[in-house]
Design a binder for these strands. Structure first.
Lengths: 209, 209
DNA sequence: ATTATTTAACTAAACGGTTATTTAAACTGA
DNA sequence: TCAGTTTAAATAACCGTTTAGTTAAATAAT
């Protein structure tokens, strides 16, 4: 009993959400226009209102889709690792991978933090909290076992996320500035390994006893 | 010699710029309304157009005022220090201090990076480049002297700035979430020293040979 | 099975509030 | 009075949202 209409409308909703994610990431909430989202989705503006609702609801859907599942990914990745060091590596790499898979994550996160998380749905905040709880566990365990120094978990988290998110978004911007002084271009080498590995190495070295 | 009118209009311009800085930081470019800026400045909207120009120009002025002079501060602070370690500490602390002095810096930076620096005036990009050049010098010198490992300067810069900016803006957000799980609140301790010192310690440890 | 009816999905056009910008008049000190 | 400055009011474009109508798939009736 396949309902052709249902299938089509599902695709429509998906196209709207994809377009919305892109436009919100590029322009931010107020900079994003429903007209542009509709155009990119190849859909009439009113269809967005019919299928999803107003701009707020649309944004909440995007946020949930973008930030929601990352938490479970992290939890899963960390659980597979054993030692605190391995767990922390998994934690960092998982964040880096999610950012890779999801180029809209950095700009959306940055703008959300910039605005003080004013529009964050509670569900998302709970997700973030669960991620932080995982990190606290790793750091505490590592300290008890004498492999980590004492740290402020929240600062470490900001270091991990801040570094990855900023680098991911700022590196292309820098590379685009072709007129930069030669000194800068000369040092414009690629990372030896992946961003996650590189950040993990730095953070681990920073907090190892 | 003293032209009362000139003085008054100077103060008007200053009040406009201060108000604009606040509103742009809170709401971003498209979220900021000229009406609100005028209201906060205690000035008629048309005065903004008479004294400064359109919204774009106003924003450019704010960006210049906020990001422009930080570069010189950093250059000055670094020059006063001797060893690569001390220079790097000065570099990091200076950024942290500027962020402290200037609460509008984090949100504006984040949104600017999020949008791919689309609206950054060239002057500002040159300032950022000069700061990066300074960091490259420090790291290279330190590596030559055998006190630093080899690093990717741009990544280190993103680590420093990302950590400071994210922490500065996200910490208050987290503290406002009173309903967070007890585990998180328990670890909600203040930093032992200043944010700059703390980040400097971590980064130095991360890149020391 | 064919026709008629209902319903889901979508669209074009318009509405109404918002907001950046302009204009012209009023004010203020020299 | 006159130039520099500020203001209230008007303008025009923009943009989120609604409405009224269309298409076509699904269902019911014949």
């Amino acid at each position: 009993m396949k309902d052709i209409r249902k299938e089509k409308s599902d695709k429509t909703v998906e196209r709207i959400l994809v377009a919305a994610r892109m436009v919100f990431a590029e322009k931010g909430y107020s900079g994003a226009h429903v007209d542009e989202i509709a155009e990119r989705a190849g859909v009439n503006k009113a269809t967005i209102y019919y299928q999803i609702g107003d701009k707020d609801t649309l944004y909440a859907n995007v946020i949930h889709q973008v930030l929601g599942n990352t938490a479970q990914n992290i939890a899963g990745a960390v659980a597979k690792a054993d030692s605190p060091e391995e767990k922390l590596k998994a934690y960092i790499n998982c964040i880096a991978e999610n950012v890779d898979k999801n180029p809209e994550l950095p700009p959306i996160m940055m703008r959300e933090v910039a605005s003080g998380g004013a529009t964050l749905p509670r569900v998302v905040i709970e997700d973030i909290a669960s991620v932080l709880t995982i990190l606290i566990g790793i750091l505490e365990d590592g300290r008890k076992k004498g492999v980590f120094i004492e740290t402020v978990p929240f600062l470490i988290h900001m270091m991990i996320v801040g570094t990855i998110v900023f680098y991911k978004k700022a590196a292309p911007v820098k590379d685009r500035q072709l007129w930069l002084p030669a000194t800068l271009k000369a040092h414009d080498k690629k990372l030896k390994s992946s961003l996650g590995e590189e950040v993990a190495a730095l953070v681990l070295k920073a907090i190892k006893r």
